[in-house]
Design a protein around this nucleic acid. Structure first.
Lengths: 340, 340
DNA sequence: CTTCAGCTTGACAGCGCTGTCAACGCCCAT
DNA sequence: ATGGGCGTTGACAGCGCTGTCAAGCTGAAG
């Protein structure tokens, strides 16, 4: 391969390869003039250090590994873009490992991948970041890792997150401020922690405004369009129905929209609907959905930053760091004051 | 790091590291008994060769790089899963590089990434695989690469594809067989080649059945929901309207559905609608969309196979290989015989 | 003018593996 | 018996870089 090596740069700059290495790694104690010569030579030769050589010789691999298991493609896509954005600034690269995190050999795959790649950091998204077996496997390799939006196990390892409860609180507040008093809520999958937090936020907001949360107004969904549809059917069929419905995610909110439509209810005039996640569909449907935007990209960026900065190489007993990122309440067409 | 090296395995098996290397790389001329001893030792030690060391010492990096620029998340997700599936069987890993392929520094990014990573293969998806600048950049690095569903430049480099024209031909045939004679067509983005091919397939099918393609029935869309919506508006507003509409992709077909709905038309009774791509939304909406499923995952798998098998390391003048994969026509609820 | 700290630089030894090449032993043909 | 071919194995030299360590130099302090 006709590739240019550090040697070529050293020769052209009239210094030793070690000095080139110093300059490229921004090590201190290099005379500015020397630095400039080296930089010029590297530039002229379009020199790019080999990741393999660096990782073999040094203590960094310039690789971040992302393990994920089938969250929505849009979610994964955002995560990847976020991570890569950060990586670009620092010469890092992202290796992706989609896999079945519930499979029998999931932990082995994680161990094997980390062992061969020796990434400087590992990123885990839900639901991978909530599986003990996987966390154990990663721990075993001693590779630094961050979890994105983990559901509990807060003290165990570093993570980045957004405040689901607060977001649900504020969204409910929005509905309340609009004048709604009778609000239906569709819960998320019982095994998914965020679902629970969102309900808590809802309940808290209602309580703070002196609005009772009527049990028959709260339905158990599963984050799917279908479950949203079914819950909405139960909520909207009776004569006595809520003036607004807050679904724990957009897919279910879409189900609510469908049911409202079937029942001849106009959204938002007859019924306000709020979702959560700001999925692409949320702004495609008509009326466009009022929802909560999760800072997915930002969380991913933050995760990569923490890893690359070395913030996740913990001493035993050290408290794992974490970062909280702000969400956005996206007001669109599906919410309005109640009729009358 | 307390990681086990090839040395440890060699010691445990009582052979030289070279022999371990032979066994792991499935080189010939190793006594079966020796092979077994080595394998047992490697197994016992849970040995995993270091990708960096292998790539530095040998001629393979065990890395595949995927460059992509914002096709839909679902598309990218499928591509990645396909590639990774193949990678897993052979100890390869996938590095992803989302980027702005139209940016001024796009080619540089490609060059730099390939130079530092030295991947054994590069995969390019639309629209990246259609940009001359990018192809030139990859060529320059002499890294083997495959394009997924490229739009032309057929002789230039290896690729995998599906027959868009034939698929559109067959889908149109389906509509025709149902009894439709007056079919509207919504074209894709003019700069996206698949769009053109799909139109050709449509036109060909119409012609073969002696159905004239009326110019006012063909609208220029841009693959977006919005553009589909607008085109459908033009198609459906007049009294004289087609009995079926074939949109070049699902997003636009969804737009058609929305317009039909606004106009009080029932799909498929009053209007048949066909899409292309089989996006997730296609089976979520009501009525579910009749569409064409692209073998995205399979194309990605094939691409990785070609790369790993070395089929893409071409001699100058050698004809680039390609693989054609079969699509599926997915018949769902949105198409039916025309009224009366 | 000497001393020593501190800045700047380079020599050198690997990192963990593969490619090359040579050595060894075996079996068959002569 | 002898030579040649080939299956099997290991020694060894790097791959392109970083970490270590020491040398050379400078300038300030004594």
């Amino acid at each position: 391969m006709p590739s240019v090596t550090i040697h070529d740069v050293a020769e052209r700059a009239g210094v030793s390869i070690k000095t080139v290495s110093r300059v490229l790694n921004k090590e201190p104690n290099v005379k500015p003039e020397t630095r400039d010569r080296v930089l010029a030579a590297a530039e002229a030769l379009r020199y790019r250090p080999s990741v393999s050589a660096r990782s073999l010789a040094g203590s960094r691999s310039y690789l971040i590994a992302l393990f994920y298991d089938n969250p929505s493609p849009a979610y994964v896509s955002d995560v990847q873009r976020g991570v890569v954005t950060t990586c670009r600034e620092t010469g890092y690269h992202l290796v992706v490992e989609p896999f079945d995190s519930a499979g029998a050999d999931a932990a082995d795959l994680v161990r094997a991948t980390i062992a061969t790649l020796r990434p400087d950091g590992v990123i885990l998204t839900p639901p991978v970041c909530d599986r003990r077996q996987i966390l154990d496997a990663v721990d075993e390799t001693r590779a630094p890792y961050v979890r994105i939006a983990p559901d509990g196990l807060i003290d165990r390892a570093p993570y980045v997150w957004m405040d689901d409860k607060q977001a649900a609180y504020e969204m409910t507040g929005h509905l309340l401020k609009l004048g709604h008093r009778d609000i239906g809520f569709i819960m998320g999958h019982p095994e998914h922690g965020a679902g629970h937090l969102r309900f808590e936020g809802f309940a808290q907001a209602m309580q703070d405004q002196g609005c009772p949360v009527r049990p028959e107004r709260v339905k158990q969904g599963y984050f799917s369009f279908r479950s949203g549809f079914d819950c909405a059917e139960e909520l909207l069929a009776p004569k006595d129905r809520p003036t607004a419905i807050f679904a724990s995610n957009d897919d279910m909110a879409l189900g609510v929209l469908a049911v409202a439509h079937r029942h001849g209810l106009t959204v938002p005039t007859d019924l306000s609907v709020a979702g959560f996640d700001d999925t692409p569909a949320a702004s495609t449907v008509s009326p466009q959905l009022t929802t909560v935007r999760q800072p997915i990209l930002e969380m991913a960026q933050a995760a990569a930053e923490m890893l690359i900065a070395g913030e996740c190489e913990l001493q035993p007993g050290e408290k794992p760091p974490s970062r909280l990122l702000p969400f956005d309440i996206i007001l669109r067409e599906s919410t309005a004051p109640p009729r009358g």
